[in-house]
Amino acid sequence: MDTLNTPDKDAATLTMLSKEVARILNVTKVEVDTGLGELGIDSLNVVELILLCEQVYRNPVNPEALAIDQYTTLRELDRQMIAAALPSA
C-alpha cells in the first residue's frame, strides 16, 4: 500500500478492516458505524484489533496514540489509522 490518503484507498482500508474484524469475531459481517463494545471488542481482545490494524495499514501502530474506547467505530478507527500513516508536514 503506497499511499493511504485518497478516498478510494480510505474506502479500501475500511472494507478490509471490517472484513478482518468480522473474521476475528467469527461473524459474517460487522457494521462500520457500530461501537467496538457493541461489536464484541473489549479490553481483552482489543489487542487483536490493534495487531490487525498493523497488517491492514502496513505501518507499526503506536497504540498509545490511538483513542479507542467501547464507542469507537471502525470508521473512526480507520480515520485515526490513516491520519497516523500520513507523512508529517
Binding site: D42, S43, V46, V47, I50, P63, E64, I68, D69
Partner: peptide
C-alpha cells in the same frame, strides 16, 4: 481506558 487498551498488547 488507556490502560485497558494497552494491557493485553
Amino acid at each position: 481506558n488507556k490502560f485497558n487498551q494497552l494491557v493485553q498488547l
